[in-house]
Simulated assay, not measured.
Amino acid sequence: MKVALLTLCFALGVLAQDTYENANDNFDISEVLNNERLLNSYAKCLLNKGPCTPEVKQVKEKLPEALETRCAKCTDKQKQMGKALAQEVKKNHPDIWQQLVAMYDPEGKYQQAWKDFLQE
């Protein structure tokens, strides 16, 4: 759940001072959610199974920190888009979701925090 959330949350920006850069906050999340090929491409990058675009590569770099801090440096827009993506992937692509969780939270130590975050 948390991985998918952060997938786009961080694909939208890079690390800045106190928050991640908001330059891509106008990113059209529906383009990813409605495009199976694009969603799978992003997932493959995050799972080290395919090439990465510069944006998704930034996500991979920031993902551990974001998981640990519950997206503390995310802008409100990034949190909103990340939640939408996470909920979509978890609901409609459970196989991808499970792979992402297994890779980025194998011990399950972020599960409850991210569950709470998604319900905020």
Rank of each mutant, 00 (worst) to 15 (best):
M1Y: 03
K2C: 04
A4F: 07
L6W: 08
L6T: 11
T7F: 03
T7V: 07
L8P: 00
C9Q: 13
C9P: 00
A11R: 14
L12Y: 06
L12S: 13
G13A: 04
V14H: 12
Q17D: 13
Q17S: 12
T19N: 12
E21D: 15
N24V: 04
N26W: 00
F27P: 00
F27Q: 05
D28Q: 12
D28P: 01
S30Y: 03
E31P: 01
N34K: 10
N35G: 06
N35Y: 05
E36W: 02
E36K: 15
R37V: 10
L39V: 05
N40W: 01
N40D: 12
N40I: 02
S41G: 02
Y42R: 12
Y42H: 11
Y42K: 13
K44L: 11
C45R: 13
L46V: 12
L46Q: 09
L47G: 10
N48Q: 04
G50Q: 06
P51I: 08
P51W: 04
C52E: 05
T53L: 06
E55I: 06
Q58A: 14
Q58P: 00
V59N: 12
K60V: 10
K60R: 13
E61R: 15
E61M: 07
L63C: 06
P64Q: 11
E65K: 13
A66N: 10
E68N: 14
E68L: 05
E68M: 08
T69V: 04
R70H: 04
R70D: 03
C71R: 10
C71L: 07
C71K: 10
A72W: 02
K73S: 09
C74T: 13
C74S: 15
T75D: 03
T75G: 02
D76P: 00
K77F: 03
K79F: 00
K79M: 05
Q80T: 11
M81L: 10
M81I: 03
M81P: 00
G82A: 07
L85S: 10
A86G: 15
Q87L: 13
E88P: 01
E88A: 14
K91P: 02
K91Q: 14
H93I: 03
P94F: 04
D95S: 14
I96R: 04
I96Q: 06
Q99H: 05
V101I: 11
A102T: 05
M103Y: 08
M103E: 09
Y104K: 02
D105R: 09
D105Y: 11
D105G: 03
P106H: 09
E107R: 09
G108P: 02
Y110E: 08
Y110G: 01
Q111P: 00
Q111M: 01
Q112C: 00
W114F: 06
W114A: 06
K115E: 09
D116P: 00
D116Q: 11
D116F: 01
F117Q: 14
L118T: 03
Q119Y: 01
E120Y: 04
